[in-house]
Structure formats: C-alpha cells, structure tokens
Simulated scan of single mutants.
Amino acid sequence: MRTLLVEDDDLIGNGVEAGLRQAAFTVDWARDGREAQLALGTTKYALVVLDLGLPKMSGAEILAWLRDCANDVPVLVLTARGNVVDRVGTLEAGADDYLGKPFDLSELVARCRALLRRSQGRSVEVMRYHDIVVDAASKTVLRDGARVPLTAREWAVLLQLLSHQGVPQSKSRLEESVYRWQEEIESNAIEVHVSNLRKKLGADLIRTVRGIGYLMDKK
C-alpha cells in the first residue's frame, strides 16, 4: 500500500522506511511539511505516518489542512510530545492513531496495518477470495492450500485490487500504489504484473474493464 512517511530526522526516517518496506508497504519519504503537502496534493495515499515537529510546515498544520480538504486518509502521528493533553489534542484534530518517540518499529508496523484494515473495513490480516488466501502480515498467498510465490510488485498489485473489490482500478492508480517517487516505470509494467498474477492464481482472477483498468469482482 502506498504510504507517505513525513519525518525530518534521517536516523528515524531511514529506520521507519526500511521497516515499512520490509513489511511490503510502498513508501515515499517527505522531509519537511511543504514537501509533504505537495505529495498529498498530487498522490493518493493509503496511509500517512506523520511527525509533528517538521520544518517549513508543522505536522499539526499538515493534519489540519488534510481534514479541511476532506481528505480522510488514515494518519498515524509520531511525536516526542508525550503528555495526555498533546495526545488528546492530536486525536481530536483528526489523527487516527498516535505513537510517542522513542517507539518500537514492530509496534509502528502493527499499528499501520491496523489502520489499513480499519480503513478497508477488515478486522483481520487474512483475506480470502474464492480458493485464494492472502495473509498480509506474513506476505504469503495460498491457492488451494499451496503457497504461491509472488514478486513484490505482484504482491502490491494483488493487494490493491483485493482491497478494492468491485471497484475498477486504473493503470495509473495501480502504478501509484506500486511504485515510489523517481522509480522508472515501463509502459507495460502493470499489464505484465496482471498477466503474471493470472498465470499464478487463475485466469479469471482479474478482469479487464475496457477503457478503465482492472477489477477483482466482489465475491
């Protein structure tokens, strides 16, 4: 899932980016508030991990701007401010969750997954679709009980389609969910990933919606 990390501390940012990418998140990293605002204004994200103490534009200002724009993207706030007043104020301002610094990376990843589940109307990590079982936590896919190996890109495309059953996903939307900033994208990359998923998981798994994109029908 395409995630925006907003953090000006390189040490923390490098650790969080690595941890989220290891957990199969597609991560863009903005190092100040203005850069984050530009990213959020031009890209649709599934999740935002937001530090409050940012240069150029504070995390609180970013959060207020997001909610004023009616952007309901889930936001996990990271901050060194640990008192109850700050926590309550951040949540009431529109944050979906709060994690004080220092934090354990595994807890951050777990909270991010929980926010994504909540935004998608799920309560568990395991998703079932006909004869396919997808475990987002362990990044495993089973078909008829047998494990099916997927590349990182195939996994990202599958999760995007599976999380939006019944809603066609355009090629550009799938590219946004799979590729980070400044990554080169071949013109037929999404077609190749979809073709590979059909070969591995079934020809009827993903339907082409002519002129729009691709779709996994709601089961």
Rank of each mutant, 00 (worst) to 15 (best):
M1P: 03
T3S: 04
L5T: 04
L5Y: 01
V6W: 01
V6P: 01
V6D: 00
E7M: 08
D9A: 09
D10E: 10
L11F: 07
I12W: 05
G15H: 02
V16N: 05
A18T: 11
A18E: 14
L20H: 06
L20F: 02
R21I: 00
A23I: 04
A24N: 10
F25L: 05
T26L: 02
T26N: 06
W29F: 01
A30M: 04
R31N: 00
D32V: 08
G33K: 13
R34M: 12
A36I: 12
A36H: 07
Q37L: 15
L40Q: 02
G41R: 04
G41I: 06
T42M: 07
K44A: 14
L47V: 06
L47A: 10
V48I: 15
V49W: 03
V49Y: 01
L50Q: 10
L50S: 04
G53L: 09
L54P: 01
L54Q: 02
P55R: 09
P55N: 06
P55H: 03
K56L: 13
S58E: 05
S58H: 06
A60D: 06
E61G: 01
I62D: 01
L63I: 04
L63N: 11
D68G: 07
C69W: 03
D72H: 11
D72L: 11
V75E: 03
V77T: 09
T79C: 10
A80E: 00
A80C: 06
N83R: 09
V84K: 14
V85F: 02
V88D: 02
T90F: 04
E92N: 12
A93M: 14
A95L: 12
D97G: 11
F103H: 06
F103G: 06
D104M: 05
D104Y: 09
L105H: 09
L105I: 15
V109T: 02
A110I: 00
R111D: 05
R111G: 11
C112F: 00
C112V: 00
R113L: 15
L115V: 10
R118I: 11
S119V: 05
S119I: 08
Q120D: 05
Q120H: 12
S123I: 00
E125H: 13
M127F: 07
M127L: 14
H130R: 15
D131W: 01
D135P: 04
A136M: 12
A136H: 07
A137V: 07
S138T: 12
S138P: 03
K139S: 07
T140F: 00
L142E: 06
L142S: 03
G145T: 03
G145M: 06
A146N: 13
A146E: 12
L150K: 10
R153Y: 13
L159T: 01
L159C: 12
L159Y: 06
Q160G: 10
L161N: 09
S163N: 08
Q165P: 09
Q169T: 00
Q169R: 09
Q169N: 10
L174V: 07
L174I: 11
E175Y: 01
S177A: 14
S177C: 13
V178C: 07
E183M: 11
I185E: 00
N188G: 08
I190W: 00
E191Y: 08
V192W: 10
H193T: 10
S195L: 15
N196H: 13
N196W: 01
N196S: 13
R198D: 13
L201G: 08
G202W: 03
D204V: 11
T208Q: 15
V209T: 14
R210E: 14
Y214L: 10
M216C: 07
D217V: 10
K218G: 02
K218N: 03
K219D: 04
K219A: 11
